[in-house]
Simulated assay, not measured.
Amino acid sequence: MVVESIPKAAGFVYGIIAFAALVWLWRSGRFTRRRAVPFLAASTLFGFLVFAPVFPYQFQALVLRDAAALGSPLPMALAGLLAFIVLALVFGRIVCGQVCPAGAVQELMYLVPAPKHGRAESRVPVAVRAGVFVVFLAAGLGLSVNLLALMGLPAFFNLTVASASFFVFLSIVLLSAVVYRPFCRYVCPYGALLAPAASKSLYRLRRTEACIGCRKCERACPTGAADPAAGLGECYLCGRCTEACPADGALVYTRAGRKE
């Protein structure tokens, strides 16, 4: 379905605009899960229309030094990907949350009413993703193997239904109806770089003195990141914790030491 007449740069421009808008919503206290849905839908649409900003695949193309797949010179692509890692260090994983089409389509799928599984503590998927990241680098740098293509990420967004790999990623998307973001949490190589940055982010969701210790935020969180002891950068800023919190002002998106 990718429309060749639309430059991939359009996807990156959308990504920058969407990122800025989402930061504003979080900083102003106006972010809600309902308001996130249009971003998720638009991001998914851009994935199908221009296959951008699909950050994990752009990172894959950079590792393979494939400027044609990137749609831009390698230095420009490297600068863009590094910039979003720096932005994660400041604002958290907003890119993963609602901007990247690979994450957005899984987030939308998780909205399907079905029994949910795998809300376990987040260290296991982090460890698995770290191992996959090593394999990803070895395959890309050493063997020039495109693992994400084998998993069907481009085939899915290109609607290449004649390809077996299309059904591999389609299966991952369908799985995300019951398991929260399996690709993002267990596979995504770009997420493996964003998570350490986000774990030290300047702005993040923090508990205030208004917290009553009910732990409803922890039960609502699908990654275990609402537990203050987690600290693994697995918060996708989905808004489930703030929606579940019964105490006004107990959970706010702010920087350390700031009085809200």
Rank of each mutant, 00 (worst) to 15 (best):
V3D: 10
A10S: 15
G11Y: 14
G15A: 08
A21I: 06
L25G: 03
R27I: 11
R30Y: 05
R34K: 11
R34E: 09
R35L: 06
S43P: 15
S43Y: 09
T44I: 02
L45N: 15
L45T: 07
F46R: 15
G47P: 02
F48I: 02
F51R: 02
P53S: 01
F55Q: 11
Y57P: 05
Q60H: 01
A61C: 01
L62K: 03
V63Q: 15
L64I: 09
L64A: 05
A69H: 01
L70H: 11
L74C: 03
M76L: 10
M76K: 15
A77V: 05
L78D: 07
A83V: 10
V86T: 05
F91P: 14
I94W: 06
V95L: 02
V95Y: 01
G97S: 02
Q98L: 12
P101Q: 02
A102Q: 14
A104D: 08
V105A: 04
Q106R: 11
Y110S: 03
K116G: 02
R119F: 04
A120W: 05
E121M: 12
E121S: 15
V124M: 14
A127P: 12
A127N: 15
V128M: 09
R129K: 06
V134S: 05
L137Y: 07
L137K: 00
A139W: 04
G140E: 00
L141C: 04
L143V: 01
N146L: 01
L153I: 15
L153G: 10
A155H: 05
F156A: 06
S165M: 04
S165T: 15
V168M: 06
R181C: 11
P182Q: 07
P182L: 10
P182T: 07
F183V: 12
F183D: 02
F183Y: 11
Y190M: 06
Y190P: 13
Y190G: 09
L193I: 04
A195Q: 11
A195C: 11
P196S: 13
A197I: 13
A198S: 03
K200C: 06
L202H: 03
I212Y: 09
I212M: 14
C214T: 00
R215N: 05
C217F: 09
C217K: 00
C217L: 00
G224L: 08
A225W: 12
D227G: 13
D227W: 13
C235V: 09
C235E: 09
R240F: 07
C241N: 01
A247K: 01
D248F: 07
L251E: 04
L251Y: 14
L251A: 09
V252A: 01
R255V: 00
R255D: 04
R255C: 03
R255S: 05
R258Q: 10
R258G: 03
R258A: 05
K259M: 10
E260N: 08
E260I: 13
